[in-house]
Amino acid sequence: MNDAVGFAIAIEDRYKGIRAPHKIKAAVSGCLRECAEAQGKDFGLIATENGYNLYVCGNGGAKPKHAVLLARDVSEETAIKYIDRFLMYYIHTADRLTRTARWLEKMDGGIEYLKKIVIDDYLGICAELEEDMARLIYTYECEWTRVVNDPKRREDFVQFVNTDETIDGIEYITERGQQRPADWPKKFDDDLVVPDNKSLTDKSWVKIALTSSFPIEAGQVIKYGDTQIAIFNTHGRTRWYATQNMCPHKRAFVLSQGLVGDDENGILKVSCPMHKKNFSLDTGECISGDVELKLMTFEVKILDDFVWLNLPPVQELDRILGTSKWKVTKNGTHEKSRFLQRSAKARIEILGKINDGCADVGCGDKKLDW
């Protein structure tokens, strides 16, 4: 068992950072009980009395596939040689996003053909495959370590591009002496009402940041008061969009990290990275079936290489989209108020009165105070 543990550590260290068409999972089990579930991985090793049995092309998930035996009773050295060849042949020949199980299913001759290539060197390419793997292994560099040690690269990972300030999008609680995020509510006890930005008054153009601060074909987030706004640079910085950063589905401040692209109707959309809700970047409407969900959008213009947004006053926008108002806390999404207990229609009317400058808008017997 101890030998198997050491071998497992060596395997993990050898193949860390490998770029492949899809994620790769591996396991080493110290006996035939294979508690590490080696036969459910892209490659797995099970210790025997004479060495290791090497299995390949398995996976779990929604379409599980039992791995198949590639080699029996091989030494650690031989096992590594076969794994090098197997992985590199997969990397060279598999289509993008194809798991090893699906790759083998499509291979003419299946496992017997793969054995001929990896073990018998049927194509005469094993030396080349081993050299390619050695090049990957010996040129490995931890990308995160490089970023941490490079002040310039660390600037790419700030929370907001227009300030060094930070905001927690979820409350952290202490449990058993350790910190963890608060529990996400299974159901929200209120309706998020986002008024049309066109109905907001007294807007003005606000200078945000240099266009070079925003990655090409991706989103980045800015802080405006207590509100997070996602800005998307598309089509090589020729088209810009801005929306609230909070996804209205689960109130997570993540839309700037979503994938941007066109849907089948040519609508430019952002897809929430959490639950794949799709929103039009032009209108903010949800185009994946949830018509009640909508984003607030903002006008963008580029002037002298700077991004500008047409925004209402900070206090007004914070009342609607402020992070502290909507973030998940240990007591729920936020404290209930009489305002939030009103109907959606009533709240829209209240917001409209606020926009018109009415200072005496109340919630029941109490003035609105949020």
Rank of each mutant, 00 (worst) to 15 (best):
39 Q>E: 13
39 Q>A: 08
39 Q>M: 14
40 G>T: 07
40 G>Y: 14
42 D>A: 11
43 F>Y: 15
44 G>A: 06
44 G>E: 02
46 I>L: 07
47 A>G: 10
47 A>E: 12
47 A>R: 14
47 A>I: 09
49 E>F: 05
49 E>Y: 04
49 E>T: 09
49 E>N: 09
50 N>W: 05
50 N>V: 00
52 Y>V: 03
52 Y>A: 02
52 Y>M: 00
53 N>W: 02
53 N>V: 00
54 L>Y: 00
55 Y>S: 06
55 Y>G: 05
55 Y>K: 05
57 C>F: 03
57 C>P: 01
57 C>N: 05
58 G>R: 07
59 N>S: 12
59 N>T: 09
60 G>K: 04
60 G>P: 04
60 G>E: 06
60 G>Q: 06
62 A>C: 09
63 K>P: 00
63 K>L: 11
63 K>C: 10
64 P>D: 10
65 K>Y: 14
66 H>N: 12
66 H>L: 15
67 A>H: 05
69 L>G: 13
69 L>F: 07
70 L>R: 03
70 L>S: 01
71 A>C: 12
71 A>L: 04
73 D>T: 04
74 V>Y: 02
74 V>T: 05
75 S>F: 07
75 S>L: 08
76 E>M: 15
77 E>W: 06
77 E>K: 15
78 T>V: 15
78 T>L: 13
78 T>F: 10
78 T>P: 00
78 T>K: 14
78 T>G: 01
79 A>P: 04
80 I>Y: 11
81 K>A: 10
81 K>I: 02
81 K>N: 11
81 K>Y: 03
81 K>D: 10
82 Y>T: 13
82 Y>W: 04
84 D>R: 02
84 D>P: 03
84 D>F: 01
86 F>L: 04
86 F>C: 02
87 L>H: 05
88 M>S: 09
88 M>Y: 01
91 I>F: 03
91 I>V: 14
93 T>D: 10
93 T>I: 12
95 D>C: 10
96 R>E: 13
96 R>Y: 10
96 R>H: 10
98 T>F: 08
98 T>E: 14
99 R>G: 09
99 R>F: 14
99 R>K: 15
100 T>S: 12
100 T>Y: 02
100 T>A: 06
102 R>M: 06
102 R>L: 08
103 W>V: 08
104 L>Y: 10
105 E>D: 15
105 E>P: 07
106 K>W: 06
106 K>R: 09
109 G>D: 07
110 G>L: 04
110 G>V: 03
111 I>N: 11
111 I>E: 07
112 E>H: 15
112 E>M: 13
112 E>C: 04
113 Y>N: 10
115 K>G: 08
115 K>V: 06
116 K>P: 04
117 I>S: 03
117 I>G: 00
117 I>H: 02
119 I>V: 15
